[in-house]
Amino acid sequence: MPKSKRNRNGAIALLFLLPYLVLWGIFAFVPIVYGFFISLHKWNPIGTSKFIGFQNYGDLFRNPRFVGALWNTLIYAAWAIPLILLVGLVFALLLRRGQLPGGAAVEAALFFPYLLNVSVVGILWRFLLDPDVGIVPYYLRVVGVDPPNFLNSPMIVLPTIAVVSAWWLAGYRMIVFRAGLNAIPDDLYEAASLDGAGSVRQFFFITLPLMRPSILFAAILTLVAGMCMLGQVLVMTNGGPGTASEVMALFMYRTAFESFNFGQAAAVGFILFVIVFGVSLVLFRVLGLRSELS
C-alpha cells in the first residue's frame, strides 16, 4: 500500500478510535495511574493530601489482616478457577453432540444460574446452606453425612463460596467451550476412530490439544475475575466468620468506605492490579496465546 494512503488511513483510524480511546482512557487507564498516585499519599478527599512515599504499602504488608486477605484471595482462586473451568468443560463435553433427547432443556437448566445477579445467588445459597433450615445440610443428614456449618467454619467457608461461584458461572463457560468443541472438524474424529483410537485417546489427542488456547484464555479471564471477587462474600458471609473469608476486594472496600483510608485502599487496588496483570501477562506470553487471537 502506498505510504500516503497509509498515513491518511492512520488519521481516519485515529478519528474512529478516538471516542473509545477517550472513554477507555478516562475510565480504565487513567484510574490505574491515578490510583498509584493516591496510594503514595495520606489521601484527604476534601483537603490537601500529604505525600508519604511507599508508607501505605509498608503498612499493608505489616498488617496481618491484609496478608490474611491476600491469602484468602489466593485460596478462593485456587478452588474457584479450576472448579468453574472443569465443571464448564465437563458440561460442554456431555452436551456436545446434539442427540440427547431434551438437550435444550438440560442446557437451559445448566446455563440459567448465570443470569441471576450476585445478590440473588448469595441470598439463595445462604438459605440453602443455613445450618437449621437449609436443604443442603438437611439432605446431607438424610444420606448420613454430618454437615459442616458451611458458611461459619473458617476452613470450609472459602471452598464453599468457590462451589457456589461454580454453580453460578460454569454454565457460561459451558456455552463458550461448546462453541470451541463444535468448531473441531468431525473428520478428525472419524479418521481417529478408523485408526482404532477410543474416545479417551480421542479426547487427549484431538479435543484437548485443539481446545488448549480457548481453555487457557478462559482460565486467564476467570483468574482476573476471581481475584476481584466481592459480591459473593459481601452477601453470603460479609467476610466472616471473623475475617476468614475477607478477600482483597472486600478489604479494599472496607479500607476505603468504612475506615475512609483512601490512600491505603488505593494501595490495595494497585497491589491487586500488579498481581493479576503480572500473572496474566506471564501466562499469556509463556503459553504463546498472542498468535491465536489475531
Binding site: F29, I32, Y34, G35, I220, L221, M252, A266, L272, F273
Partner: peptide, 18 residues
C-alpha cells in the same frame, strides 16, 4: 488484549474520585 487482563473493579477507588 492486554487491557482485557486488567480487572476493572480494582480501579474503583481512583475511579470513584474521577
Amino acid at each position: 488484549i492486554l487491557a482485557m487482563f486488567v480487572p476493572w473493579e480494582i480501579n474503583s477507588i481512583p475511579l470513584f474520585f474521577i
